[in-house]
């Protein structure tokens, strides 16, 4: 019981500290967050201004990364050790702008499950 009280007290203090940190964000950062928010909204409500940012460009990025990797592999001395993992896996991660492809699936499974219990 005492242990649980201690834990609750600890968590309350941690939350308070985190809240304080949130309150103390600098004016400059807040201004940048405001700008980011406006830009995000513009992608939806003012597509001409910002639409170009969202043209999907995986292939140029992948091609550039592949060329850099190839150049490195060709020009490095031959006695170097092998890369510790499959380079193509890393290439995919480095070139990817969208690793959130798995976002929806189980989230909506959860929502569907949650729905009958709602309100």
């Amino acid at each position: 019981m005492k242990n649980q009280d201690d834990e609750n007290s600890f968590l309350k203090k941690v939350k308070h500290s985190l809240d304080q940190g949130e309150e103390n964000i600098s004016a400059e950062t807040l201004s940048r967050l405001h700008r980011i928010r406006q830009e995000a909204l513009n992608t939806k409500y003012n597509k001409n201004a910002w639409g170009i940012k969202w043209i999907p460009m995986p292939y140029p990025a992948l091609a550039t990364a592949a060329m850099v990797l190839l150049a490195v592999l060709i020009y490095l001395p031959g006695d170097r050790e092998q890369a510790p993992v499959n380079p193509l896996d890393d290439l995919e991660i480095l070139a990817s702008n969208n690793l959130d492809f798995y976002e929806d699936l189980d989230f909506y499974a959860w929502l569907a499950e949650e729905e009958p219990n709602a309100g």
Partner: peptide
């Protein structure tokens, strides 16, 4: 604000945190 602080704590870097918040907002919108 909370998103920024979570990213900042995790990355230890304000610039990267702002980038993460920006990406998140764009994707969410």
């Amino acid at each position: 604000r909370r998103a920024f602080r979570m990213a900042q704590i995790s990355t230890g870097n304000s610039e990267d945190a702002l980038d993460i918040v920006q990406d998140s907002m764009f994707i969410w919108v």
